[in-house]
């Protein structure tokens, strides 16, 4: 479903991704872990064609379509994005529009130009919007202004938008990083449910391993732009992460083993 071959990316000389090869089959739910700056968000942005790789890169294929090749994004990318739902850390909804309208925007690409311009969406798409809102459990918020929703509810609206897109792949970039634990659980369960019942391929970046262990059968671990582990999440032990990440591994677990000691002299 997703095939990344020899992807390279550097930002002003600094390698952010080096020689990434990643193959994900249809219907998988994969966690992409790594501490901040490890390149996981960058990888995501490449897969959905928001960022172009370096010239000396291979291809990225999603669902049999070429997204980019040797640093050139496919010219029909706008059409291709329709099939890829993207969930962002900051939700990326339009705050002043109603929740329903934000979700319905998922249907923009298949709405004729003038109808889309005036918000004149097809009846099926309105029904689809209604169903999507029910599925993620925020149907009662449909007419509310999006900015008035809590973070968890906004993230579920973003997932509903991807559903209206009829996306076959969902790329969730740190979907729970700015949510409280309860909302995070609801969002992850929603993604899991979509993966199991609709067979949607889900790739989710996380910086806490706990959630990967709970929800994703397969984990890909990144460190400084390299893939350092790719395999069943069950095989990931704390000791193994320690060898992979060294002192950084504490970061990857939500719960610290010991409370931080109070810095001496700070109270003086």
């Amino acid at each position: 479903m997703i095939h990344v071959t020899n992807l390279n990316k550097s930002f002003s000389g600094v390698k952010a991704l080096s020689d990434i090869n990643l193959h994900i089959e249809r219907g998988e739910m994969v966690a992409l872990i790594g501490s901040s700056g490890s390149g996981k968000s960058t990888l995501m942005r490449h897969i959905c064609g928001l960022t172009a790789g370096d010239r000396e890169s291979g291809q990225i294929m999603v669902n049999g379509c070429l997204i980019q090749e040797q640093g050139r994004i496919n010219r029909d990318i706008r059409e291709l994005r329709t099939h890829i739902g993207v969930i962002f850390q900051q939700f990326n909804l339009v705050g002043r529009l109603s929740v329903a309208r934000n979700v319905c925007l998922g249907a923009l690409s298949r709405t004729p130009f003038l109808k889309g311009l005036f918000g004149n969406f097809a009846k099926e798409d309105l029904e689809l919007t209604c169903k999507a809102l029910e599925r993620v459990g925020i149907a009662d918020k449909a007419w509310q202004r999006t900015s008035t929703l809590s973070g968890g509810q906004q993230q579920r609206a973003a997932i509903a938008r991807a559903l209206v897109q009829r996306a076959e792949v969902m790329l969730a970039d740190e979907p729970i990083a700015s949510l409280d634990p309860e909302s995070a659980r609801v969002v992850m369960s929603t993604l899991q449910e979509l993966n199991r019942t609709d067979g949607i391929t889900v790739v989710v970046t996380l910086h806490q391993v706990d959630y990967a262990i709970q929800y994703c059968p397969r984990t890909v671990a990144l460190k400084k732009g390299h893939i350092v582990y790719d395999g069943p999440t069950a095989n990931l032990t704390r000791a193994m992460l320690k060898t992979l990440y060294g002192s950084e591994s504490d970061d990857l677990f939500g719960r610290k083993e010991e409370a931080p000691t109070i810095v001496q002299g700070a109270a003086a």
Binding site: L50, R78, E79, F88, G106, L108
Partner: peptide, 28 residues
């Protein structure tokens, strides 16, 4: 830029990005 990117991620065209991502933000 984030709402605009959100609209872009659905496969919207440039004008649709402006109408749904930009205008609601600047309207008031």
């Amino acid at each position: 830029v984030s709402p605009v990117e959100g609209v872009r991620s659905t496969g919207a065209s440039y004008v649709e990005e402006v109408v749904y991502g930009v205008l609601p933000q600047v309207f008031p």
